[in-house]
């Protein structure tokens, strides 16, 4: 009983699943911008894009005010908005004004993939822990 409470105390403040799904949402958005960059790798004048760093997205999402009276206006929505897209600093710009570097994009895609795998594995491990306590 005491152990269960301790486990709950450890797990709830971390908001682990919440953070994992937020990070995964961010990674998915990043994958989309990478796909757009790669698809436009030969479009004249196309500027490569990237999403804002995850830390920035987290900071915007975290601060929400609790309403103590019904008349209070809500602050920022707790649900993270779609990450904003910014112009990327890329390795080279070709003569046509296209700034997509395929190598760089594929490295970023590999990065995204690795982080996504890490997140899903961590979520899976925690899920197993919860299941283990539920099944006893």
């Amino acid at each position: 009983m005491g152990l269960a409470r301790k486990a709950a105390a450890v797990m709830t403040p971390i908001h682990l699943f919440n953070v994992v799904s937020q990070h995964n949402r961010w990674l998915a958005a990043r994958q989309t911008t990478i796909a757009g960059n790669v698809a436009n790798a030969n479009t004249p004048g196309f500027k490569a894009l990237d999403v804002q760093p995850f830390e920035m997205a987290m900071e915007q999402a975290r601060l929400t005010m609790a309403a103590t009276k019904p008349g209070h206006m809500a602050g920022a929505d707790a649900n993270a908005p779609a990450p904003g897209v910014r112009k990327d600093e890329t390795w080279d710009v070709t003569h046509t004004g296209n700034s997509v570097s395929l190598e760089q994009e594929l490295i970023k895609a590999g990065d995204v993939n690795r982080a996504y795998r890490l997140n899903t594995s961590v979520a899976k491990a925690f899920h197993r822990m919860i299941l283990a306590s539920a099944k006893v």
């Binding site: 958005a29 994958q31 989309t32 796909a35 757009g36 698809a39």
Partner: peptide
């Protein structure tokens, strides 16, 4: 779903 979107973009 952004991942579905990236499939379409690809």
């Amino acid at each position: 779903d952004p991942l579905q979107a990236s499939l379409k973009i690809g």
